[in-house]
Simulated scan of single mutants.
Amino acid sequence: MGINWKVRFKHRSFWISLIALISIFLNQVASIFNIDVTLFNAQFTELAETILMILVFLGVIVDPTTHGIKDSDQALTYTTPKKKG
């Protein structure tokens, strides 16, 4: 099960999701050490984290071999993962 990192690094949604993931991770680490990184208030921070999690989710489900965030027409016809030929 290989990952084509070269293609992923060229895809905008990969970088957006990676930055969002790192932001959420750093916030969680800060809370472990009782460091308050609340921007305005707790509700705003929770909303920001929710939005970042959605961006991470989109980065996980996106097909990096296509332009945009949709799957290719060929990938939409698969019922099981494509096997190497």
Rank of each mutant, 00 (worst) to 15 (best):
N41W: 11
Q43W: 08
Y78K: 06
K6T: 15
F44V: 13
T45I: 08
G68H: 00
M53K: 09
S23I: 11
I61M: 04
L58V: 08
W5M: 09
M53L: 12
K83E: 12
I32L: 10
H67L: 09
Q43M: 10
F57K: 02
Q74R: 10
V37T: 08
D73P: 14
A75T: 04
I22E: 00
I16P: 06
S23N: 11
I3W: 06
N4P: 04
T45W: 12
N34T: 02
E49Q: 10
N41A: 03
L47C: 02
S31N: 12
W5R: 13
S17M: 01
I54Y: 12
R8P: 01
Q28L: 14
L21V: 01
I24K: 06
S13E: 15
G59C: 01
L39R: 05
N34V: 07
T77A: 13
T77E: 08
Q28D: 12
M53N: 04
A75N: 12
A20S: 14
L55I: 04
I51C: 13
K82G: 03
I32Q: 03
R8T: 00
I32E: 03
I32W: 13
H11K: 02
L21K: 06
G2E: 05
K84W: 10
N27A: 14
T38Q: 03
D73S: 09
M53T: 07
G85M: 11
I32F: 13
T80S: 14
T79G: 08
V60D: 04
T79M: 14
T50E: 14
A48Y: 12
L76G: 06
A30W: 01
V56K: 07
T80M: 13
T79H: 09
T80P: 01
D71A: 15
I69W: 10
I51K: 02
T38V: 14
N41Q: 00
W15G: 01
K82E: 05
A30P: 04
G68R: 05
A75Y: 07
F9Y: 11
K6Q: 08
K70G: 11
I32Y: 03
L21G: 15
D73E: 15
L39I: 05
F57P: 04
F44A: 13
V60G: 04
